[in-house]
Design a protein around this nucleic acid. Structure first.
Lengths: 239, 239
DNA sequence: GTCTATACCCTGATAGAC
DNA sequence: GTCTATCAGGGTATAGAC
């Protein structure tokens, strides 16, 4: 009895997290309702507030449960690469694979739940709610610092400002893709066919695109638009 | 009196659209409320339902007001380029500039309101609500067909499936960037400094990244992951 | 400690007065 | 055309039962 009671406690929390993950993914943060989440989990509405305190806290718990191990793994992989490189700069392809490849491989390894979380994290990047952005920026702070530094070393001829922008673009391409909304119905069979196959196909495609963008020729300081106003903040020399 | 009365009607509609645009941008579709929108517009709550019928219809009207002229302009620009090319295939850089450059230049031309809509459209691409995805896919159907066809002609050596995926990635990088959430605080001064300058800086940076990704070497059919299962759906020959 | 019933407030939407 | 009053529904949070 006592063992089953304590097991039930963990089950309630876990069921809530699983149900919340799915509903938040499908409806977005604002669109999701505690009633639906707790209903899907088979627990009472107030049980959600008992275990997590609020809808915001529940969302944060859903995010952190998987995001923390993901980012720890990203740091671990980068550590391993840098140890092997023995002081030399890494190749851009290694860095991108450590960052984006780790994401996709972990999602594949977790099956359907990994797929669900992949979409959730993709959509979460564009959630407007302020607390979500705070949670994400805190959770990603260390990883981004480390990976930015690795990219700076890997591409010493590219201005740091440009690398940051390109990191931004890469995150956008990736998060939009894994969000899987496919708003414009460009990829018709995505999210209908076998998801695992799609994910395994996605990685090489995405990697070649991101690498191509990262290593693209630098833009001219004079913009190609008809009326260059010339007050672009681009710096051509290092400070 | 009669003239000012009819002018008031248009003002009410326009004020509602402007207020809705701003609130939807800041809060997302689900997070926005009709009360805040009508309050900001200085009109009664019921006036919103009188003029548009529902929150969904209002959102659709906000989107279509600017999206339709944008996509018409995109078609017009592409028509002009293809007429000038006189049957020859366009350069990828021309096509990307016609699609993404037209977006940014129109936003710049409209000042703050253009900036607001830019962010809104970026976020809208990842809205989970089904009716939003339907609206977008209908509004973009023609433009995407035309631009996809242009890219197929411009890059005959690249498999069409690959071009579609890369178009997808490009849309992701762009929409994430113009959404301006900057969830990971990568670009610290974005959306705080002078927005117009940022936008003018953005275009050449984005274009070089997108072009680099679009023209990247094709990925190997064997995926670089440790355990290639080999059932990737990639086709190497045309059917 | 765990869970349930309930209260409270805000949402989108409507009916009817002006 | 515009507005006040109001409805039913749903989301959050609390007080209290086990």
């Amino acid at each position: 009895m006592t063992t089953s009671a304590s097991a039930d406690i963990r089950d309630t929390r876990a069921r809530l997290l699983d149900a919340a993950e799915a509903v938040f993914m499908a409806c977005g943060y604002e669109g999701a309702s505690m009633r639906q989440i707790t209903g899907d989990a088979g627990v009472n509405l107030a049980a959600g507030h008992y275990h997590f305190g609020s809808k915001e806290a529940l969302f944060e718990a859903v995010l952190n449960r998987r995001l923390h191990v993901l980012n720890q793994e990203r740091l671990r992989v980068l550590d391993g690469l840098e140890a092997k490189a023995n002081g030399a700069a890494l190749k851009p392809s290694q860095i991108l694979d450590a960052f984006f490849g780790t994401l996709l491989r972990m999602a594949i390894a977790h099956g359907d739940r990994g797929q669900t979380f992949l979409r959730l994290i993709g959509r979460t990047f564009t959630e407007p709610a302020e607390f979500i952005r705070t949670v994400l920026s805190e959770e990603f702070a260390d990883v981004l610092e480390r990976y930015k530094a690795a990219l700076f070393r890997a591409l010493p001829e590219v201005p740091k400002e440009e690398i940051i922008w390109r990191f931004h673009f890469m995150l956008g391409a990736t998060s939009y893709t894994i969000a899987g909304t496919d708003t414009l119905r460009l990829v018709t069979d995505w999210q209908t066919g076998a998801a695992d196959d799609d994910l395994e196909c996605l990685l090489p495609r995405l990697m070649s695109f991101l690498l191509g963008g990262l290593r693209a020729p630098l833009p001219a300081t004079a913009s190609p638009v008809p009326q260059p106003r010339g007050n672009c903040r681009t710096r051509r020399k290092k400070p």
